[in-house]
Design a binder for these strands. Sequence first.
DNA 1: GTGAAAGCGCTAACAA
DNA 2: TTGTTAGCGCTTTCAC
Lengths: 331, 331
Amino acid sequence: MASIKDVAREAGVGVGTVSRAINNTGYVSPATRKKIDKAVQKLNYTPNELARNLFRNRSGIVGVIVPDLDHPFFSCLVKHIEMQLYKQGYKTMVCNAVGVSDREREYLDMLERNIVDGIITGSHCLDGEEYLRHEKPIVSIDRDFGPKIPIVGSDHMMGGELAAELMIRDGRKNVLQIAGVSPHILANERHLVFQKKLEDHHVRVRSISMDWNVFSWEAFYEAARNLVDGYSDIDGIFAGDLGVVAYMNMASQRGMHIPEDISLVGFDATSVTKMVYPHITAIRQNVPLLAEVSVNTLLDQIEQRRDILHRQILNVEVCYGGTTKAEREGA
Amino acid sequence: MASIKDVAREAGVGVGTVSRAINNTGYVSPATRKKIDKAVQKLNYTPNELARNLFRNRSGIVGVIVPDLDHPFFSCLVKHIEMQLYKQGYKTMVCNAVGVSDREREYLDMLERNIVDGIITGSHCLDGEEYLRHEKPIVSIDRDFGPKIPIVGSDHMMGGELAAELMIRDGRKNVLQIAGVSPHILANERHLVFQKKLEDHHVRVRSISMDWNVFSWEAFYEAARNLVDGYSDIDGIFAGDLGVVAYMNMASQRGMHIPEDISLVGFDATSVTKMVYPHITAIRQNVPLLAEVSVNTLLDQIEQRRDILHRQILNVEVCYGGTTKAEREGA
DNA sequence: GTGAAAGCGCTAACAA
DNA sequence: TTGTTAGCGCTTTCAC
């Protein structure tokens, strides 16, 4: 593996000159440049990024922590984050927290060890203070760590509002929502708004909770079975996409009719809402934008490009499917 | 950010001693160790991995290239690869090739630049020679690059055989398969075997192709629509999970009955096969094992632990759902 | 047991 | 314009 010294020797110049030529920084005469180019060609030289990293004290890598890479929302998010980072010259290191706080912590520590230049986190099993201990840039998706860490998220309040409206338009009177449980996450707001709005319209709302950090399909399935059996009187469900999918499965097995018997509204509008039949009516988070804004917010910090907004909340919208009777207004 | 020098000064010892203490390499007396520990505590010292990387000429990072991170098979694969790498002390850098050969190439180049210690690739839009140019360890999933690059994959021939058997047991006479097109991938074998076996049993088999590197849901949907309209006489379909899902959607819209009218067999048995109703009968690839074997094969090369097997083919199995009439034998 | 010093490959300041 | 040199922070001989 040829080094810059080898190139310098081969070209008969100093290493500084080679460095300047390679990086197009500072003066280097056309003649010298030609010699250097030839030497680079001949030795098949590629700069060793490890040495550059040490000098610059930056790795060009951003860490992305999510609860589960194999979850339609997070795989989509990571995909778009990777594409945004790539566009801006950064690489993406991923971490599956899989509900294990040690893993989350260990990835966070990579900030101090200079392995990553910053972190975007969508996971929440670790205590907030563990995040606040770190000096380097962090962006949080959907969880509020207080004023020191910028947060990017969707407008869950609007989401709860829109979901409630769908239930009202469908004339439902006895609905249930499945809420994730985790402190300080924006998602909590949507359940509060949903409940409030519906109760204002004299609709009965019950809520059940599921662990936010565990996404086993079996757990959803089990929960859905309990629902069908234990809450046979409900006529509407508001839940994450996967919760709705699981419920639809059970409902189909029991021969229920959707949306005649019950209205189902998902949250996220991931690809799975288009895989089942009928397609699921869901509140869509704008994942590409979520990725773009979080990446920009992080890189603004890393490169100290501009002041950081502490809180950026993105719009959500209804994505109409066949699990509600309501359709796009004017359609 | 305290450096090892600061610690040495604080503890009143030399940097070499600190290094030895930190890494538990070589002798260091209990008394000295105590002093060093205290200094480390006081200065909140963390070793700078960038400097270590330069010295060792290793980054501890493995690159994983997939066509699309937001695809149920690959997101599951990447998840398990990350978990395996983590267990062995490595970090995971991801690349969405998204069908763009430049991106794939650029990630490959990180091998020469020492950004990653090795690469596991599940993408195939780049020419084989581009892979063979590289010196550092590469493991290929499902694509044969010739003798220089180890390949790990599923037994697609057995998969084709098992799928064909399902069609035969269901008494189908006129089936269709959707094949990805890409040269030198193991997946090609399953379609040959499937066709051969069924034709031996006097079943008519037609094949249509789709671009292997593009996974847009719309494309699948469009293809499914064409199928329902253009091939109304078929009574069996063998395709990737998503192809089957798309077809089921169209079939449901047209009021077709599954599996009475038609048998559907997926390949991969990703989570989506359990999301739709009925669940899809599919040939399962053992993704956790695929991840484990490819990671071990790569790390064996990186750490020169042992001889590398060139070709490791893992078993597949039938995962019974409700889209075929056949059930588990003896069930 | 421990410290001093060389060097991993690169960049940037400085002299020439 | 160019070459030399001093680090970036760490590990590892090699004397002591």
